[in-house]
Amino acid sequence: MRSLPSILFPMVLATLPGTAGPAPGDPPGTLPSSGDDLVEVRVLCDTTNLLPGQSFTIGIEYSIEPGWHIYWRNPGANGLPPEIGITAPEGFEVGDVLYPRPRVFGAGEDASYGYDGEVVLLVPIRAANDLAPGPVDLEFALEWLVCKRVCLVGAATRTLRLDRTLPGRESTTNPAEARLIRSWAQRVPRLIGSPQPRGFFARLDDRQHLLIRGIAGASKDAIYLPGGTPGVAPVQPGPVRGSVTNGRFTFDIPLSVEPENALGQPLRANGLVLLGTYERPRAYEIDLPVVPGTTSQPPAPPEG
């Protein structure tokens, strides 16, 4: 985690005469000078005390000023995902950040992906096996880019103190925060193949295509959001709308596959299939290795 940014002088557009007015809905002179004022952050935890080796989940709750938004792990055409730096005692294992289903802001090649209102990003953690008695402090260094018409950087630090469970006692949960974390965990997309949808590759029109098929259920819409892996992207940038017929969805996404732009990383087709609504979402993570020019066997039609 890099050091927190220092905002050294007030926003240019607030200091120069005759320059930008406030964004729509903002009274004159009220545009904030930093993103600190636009996003409140709170660290949640589903447990209050720990057993050695216990797995638990941290939630970083962002409460965002109306009209502004922060970004998903792939921000889309512009923006940056939030940065979450966690300093934990030796022996703790900190997992990757889990992102709930994002919203789409804008359209087409200018679309960006993120969250407005409230969102909780989740971080799975495993306590050290040799956890010593006494308090356990986890330090959080948080940064975010928050945008409306203009963008501002915000930053905060937080400390979470947990206790090691006394010998012979059970770990105790924090019911309110555990409930909130569980509800946001349900919005985290499931990986492909659990048990559907299915993705595979075909070579059509001299170009590699990503084909995805699955059961749409009651959803009338199916949207694919590219994950932003370097070297692989839909030929047409931005979200892709799938076809939904008889309760099943299909995507046929022509891909641009450019090994020279992969930055040394494996070529992967990565993204989300979004079904349902933002509030009642069903979302699947697509993450498939890409071998340029090859095809893979289409899976059997989905059950149901």
Partner: peptide, 16 residues
């Protein structure tokens, strides 16, 4: 020589 990479996803504030 050839330029590689020719594209890396841009980051920053949006251009309107």
């Amino acid at each position: 020589g050839d330029v590689s990479p020719t594209y890396v996803r841009q980051w920053g504030c949006g251009v309107k």
